[in-house]
Simulated scan of single mutants.
Amino acid sequence: MGRFGPEYWDKYGVYRTPLGFNLTLLVLLRPFLVWLMSALTWRPDLDIMSLFFPSKSNFLVAIGIAAIALLPAVVYSMRRPSSSQSWGRIWRFMRWPMLLAAVLDLGWLLMQASSNHYQFSFYLAGQIVLVSWVILYLINSRYLTCFFGDWPEPDTK
């Protein structure tokens, strides 16, 4: 496992959050974000939900898959020196729920594409490309390995 120097550390002496990690969470939690945007733009002529989810069952499956990625997001929100060290032991394994959510999401998107007889849909194709990039990032990133292995030391104040 490669180590990165002090230029990658934050003020607490732990690895800074990579931008790719935040973008990965954004892609994996997109059903929740679409749901939130749809609720905030309550206009009948602008149906955001139908662009991404043609039926209610598709939306529910997507929410179920995205719920797996909520666990790393919650543990990430606890990543500060005032948190319990038991969160750190859990944090080491948070790459796997993210990877599982991404693989399930890609499988679900491919099933949707095949059920439409591979008729081109810009929104579906864009999501497939994004989730494929997320999977490659989660598998190949060396910095992410160090990031998941690091947890802030407790405050001694």
Rank of each mutant, 00 (worst) to 15 (best):
109 L>I: 11
63 I>R: 00
47 D>N: 14
125 A>K: 13
38 S>G: 12
118 Y>I: 07
103 V>Y: 03
5 G>D: 14
85 Q>G: 15
18 P>S: 09
69 A>Q: 05
5 G>T: 11
79 R>D: 01
140 N>C: 11
65 I>L: 11
39 A>C: 00
117 H>V: 07
103 V>N: 08
28 L>S: 09
86 S>M: 10
109 L>Q: 14
51 L>A: 07
141 S>C: 07
103 V>M: 12
110 L>I: 11
29 L>E: 08
118 Y>N: 12
108 W>P: 01
59 F>P: 00
96 W>K: 08
129 V>E: 11
152 P>I: 04
136 L>V: 10
97 P>E: 01
115 S>A: 14
84 S>V: 00
10 D>I: 04
17 T>Q: 05
78 M>V: 01
78 M>K: 15
126 G>A: 15
142 R>G: 06
77 S>M: 10
106 L>K: 03
38 S>Y: 05
149 G>Q: 08
96 W>R: 10
96 W>P: 00
61 V>L: 12
44 P>Q: 09
101 A>Q: 06
8 Y>L: 06
109 L>C: 03
7 E>S: 12
81 P>R: 07
144 L>P: 12
106 L>A: 12
95 R>W: 01
10 D>F: 02
129 V>R: 11
130 L>Q: 13
17 T>C: 07
15 Y>T: 01
88 G>E: 09
135 I>D: 08
69 A>M: 06
151 W>R: 06
76 Y>I: 01
153 E>C: 05
145 T>E: 14
139 I>T: 14
48 I>V: 15
110 L>K: 09
149 G>N: 12
138 L>D: 09
26 L>R: 13
5 G>S: 15
11 K>Y: 03
124 L>M: 12
111 M>Q: 10
